[in-house]
Computed example of a mutant assay.
Amino acid sequence: MSTGPDSASATAPLPPTPPPSFPYRLVATDLDGTLLRADDTVSVRTREALAAVTAAGAAHIIVTGRAVPWTRHILDDLGYEGLAVCGQGAQLYHAGEHRLLTSVTLDRQLAGLALSKIEAETGPLALAASRDGLDGEVLIGPGYRVLDDELPAVFVDDPAEMWAAPLNKVYIQHPELDDDALARVARATAGTLVDVVMAGAGVVEILPLGLNKATGLSLAARRLGVTAADTIAFGDMPNDIPMFAWARHGVAMANAHEELKAVADEITASNCDDGIAVVLERLLLGRPGPV
């Protein structure tokens, strides 16, 4: 039997190389300050790292404080077609189908009572509100500072307009208190009625009690057939703390808020320095790193 270089066995294609091993089945990433760089783009390196982990059998899911109307254009630009947890966990969105799967709304009566309690301590607040639904508008009340004028918003002169339809959340600002101080006061005075999170610079939010990124992520994980023990999560702000508590491993960006760094399992490079890719590449090489 011939065994030379012209034999069939010598010319047969080699079997495909198996994908690299990866210790998690789900990679959950926050959006702003985590997956997105300062210019709202995702680097080639991070895209390639995420593609490699999905090739290894893991799923990638975006978990963001943004409501769907403020998120879907970014997902479309990224070519992202999976599930996304939006609105601090209030909304589960199928990006590929452009379909809102689940949505939780804020009890407007309780929210009004909570605001009254907060304002009794702080004085008048400036408000904005995120309306429920796939096309829900963000309504901006008098005095509320919009930090990103490229995001779709509707300015209203009468604050009562914000309460006329179902809401996912209410944003609050104070003319003197910084974000951390405002969030602390709001939790202390109204924390039995609503949840309060600090989600970014100038972004303090009132949410339905018990709602957070972990509740939304757990719902998405069940649909994907994975668990908390299968999950690595990346984030940068205090609103990511529940997600870190839920996931097996929480990674804070170098640019993260100190409250999140304090509970993280490890700290990576910043969002502008491919912090997500740094960790994923290491894990793909079988190097567990910090625990």
Rank of each mutant, 00 (worst) to 15 (best):
I118A: 08
E121G: 03
V104E: 04
A114C: 10
S103G: 13
L115F: 09
A95D: 04
S116Y: 02
A128H: 09
L100W: 03
S130R: 11
K117T: 00
G112V: 02
A126R: 12
A126T: 12
E121L: 09
K117Q: 13
L101I: 15
G112Y: 06
K117G: 00
R99Y: 03
S116W: 02
A126N: 10
Q109E: 15
L100F: 04
S103F: 00
A111H: 05
A120V: 03
A128S: 14
T102C: 07
R108G: 13
K117A: 12
L127W: 06
R99K: 13
T122M: 10
L92Y: 03
Y93S: 09
T102S: 15
I118Y: 08
E97R: 15
A128I: 11
A95N: 03
A95L: 04
R131D: 01
A129Y: 09
A95R: 06
E121H: 13
H98Q: 14
P124M: 08
L106C: 09
G112A: 12
R131W: 01
A95H: 05
R99H: 13
H94L: 05
E121Y: 08
R108T: 13
E121P: 02
R131Y: 00
R108H: 07
T122F: 09
E121W: 08
A128N: 05
L92F: 02
H98I: 01
D107I: 10
A111P: 07
L115R: 12
D107Y: 09
L125P: 01
A128M: 11
